[in-house]
Simulated assay, not measured.
Amino acid sequence: MAIIPIDLAGRSYDVRVNEGLIASLPDHCGSLLRKKRVPIVTDNNVAHHWREQVDYALSASGFEPRWRILPPGEGSKSWTGLSETVDWLLSEEVERGDHIIALGGGVIGDLTGFAASILKRGCGFIQVPTTLLAQVDSSVGGKTAINTSAGKNLVGAFHQPALVLADLDALGTLPRRERLAGYAEVIKYGILGDAEFFGWCEENGAAVVAGDSEAQHYAVTRSVAAKARIVAEDERETTGARALLNLGHTFGHALEAQTGFSDRLLHGEAVALGMVLAARFSARKGYISNGDAERIAHAIGASGLPTEITSLGLNCGGQTLADHMLHDKKMDAGTLPFVLLRSIGDAILDKDVALNDVADFLQEQLGAA
């Protein structure tokens, strides 16, 4: 088992990566489960695969699992989903010293973490991410949020979990499309800060997506270690270091908004497209070569992820996509910083990007220039 510490002042916790963690949940949670009743938030898909095992593991250790099972998808990460979850937690008499288990992907982790952050001014929670994307990204670092009509993740809080259990067995239950979406966040760590790992991804990305256990263990462990270093340096995204993790997200969120934050475009697919766009825009600005930009596009495309926004069949122009960026939560004093690339493995935060230039670039990418 790999154990990666997230070192924060006074609030450090571990991310554990291995097979069999869900089946042995009480052994890992230890004293964090201090009462007989254990509140668990999940969705229907995850409950189908894991409820029986969790029930057995907790009951055998003298606990009483209490379930809140939500519909899968971004629709649950809403004001209504938050309100109803908080009301349920209150009805379960959750106290500030208790820990809620978030069992699921990024939607469940974000919603549960945000509910925990505001319940009685902050109670504990444990992340048990069941998707590749959540294991390498959203479960680590304490960002929690819900979506609103104005955009994605615009209402939330920084609230660190007490423990993260990344069970690799859960990845075997995922459809290939979900594994691909998670892989986008894996290769991101190579593109933004680790050229050696990017090279490893070029050679082994297909094995990660196909379910090779050794490749998945390495990919998850290396990705979490990379994020741990960045989060420890810049927990609340104030110095610019953590902002580099947003590589591909500014472009990607605009595409998600245009497709209605729906299953038409999964978050990881949007990030993959966003990273290709960020690389090509970096080349357009003269930061990297066109060759490096297309090497990134090829590596992403070789895994099976989308690389061309024309594949989405969007009925809009570049200006419409750029307008979505005006609602980005990273807007500061009327400007929007972009994560761009000086080279593969060397990302920078560019605070001098004109959105009209971005709109022109996106129009070209849409093939309507």
Rank of each mutant, 00 (worst) to 15 (best):
M1S: 14
I3A: 13
I4Y: 01
P5L: 00
L8I: 12
G10K: 13
G10E: 11
R11K: 14
R11Q: 14
V15E: 08
R16T: 15
V17H: 09
V17S: 11
G30V: 09
R34N: 13
R34C: 14
K36H: 11
V41H: 10
N44G: 15
A47F: 00
W50D: 07
E52M: 11
Q53S: 15
A57G: 06
S59L: 11
S61E: 12
S61N: 10
G62N: 12
T80A: 14
T85S: 11
V86T: 11
L90W: 05
S91T: 02
R96E: 04
R96C: 00
I100T: 07
A102K: 04
I108P: 01
D110H: 08
I118M: 12
K120D: 11
R121L: 07
G124D: 05
Q127A: 13
L133M: 14
A134G: 09
S138T: 02
V140K: 09
V140A: 04
A145P: 03
G151K: 07
N153S: 09
N153I: 03
V155E: 02
V155Q: 02
G156C: 08
G156H: 03
A157Y: 10
A162I: 00
L163P: 08
L163R: 06
L165Y: 05
D169W: 02
A170L: 07
A170P: 00
G182S: 10
E185R: 05
I187D: 00
G199Y: 00
E202R: 12
E202L: 05
E202Q: 14
A206T: 13
A206R: 14
D212G: 01
A215M: 07
Q216T: 11
E233L: 12
D234R: 02
G240Q: 07
A241I: 01
G248V: 06
F251R: 03
F251V: 03
H253E: 04
H253R: 02
Q258P: 00
F261K: 09
L266E: 00
H267A: 10
A270W: 01
A279P: 01
A279W: 03
F281S: 06
S282Q: 09
I300R: 04
I300C: 03
G301C: 10
A302I: 07
S303G: 02
T310D: 05
S311G: 03
G313Q: 10
N315D: 15
C316Y: 00
A322F: 07
H327N: 14
G334D: 04
T335A: 13
L336H: 05
L340E: 02
G345N: 08
D346T: 12
I348N: 04
L349W: 09
L349N: 13
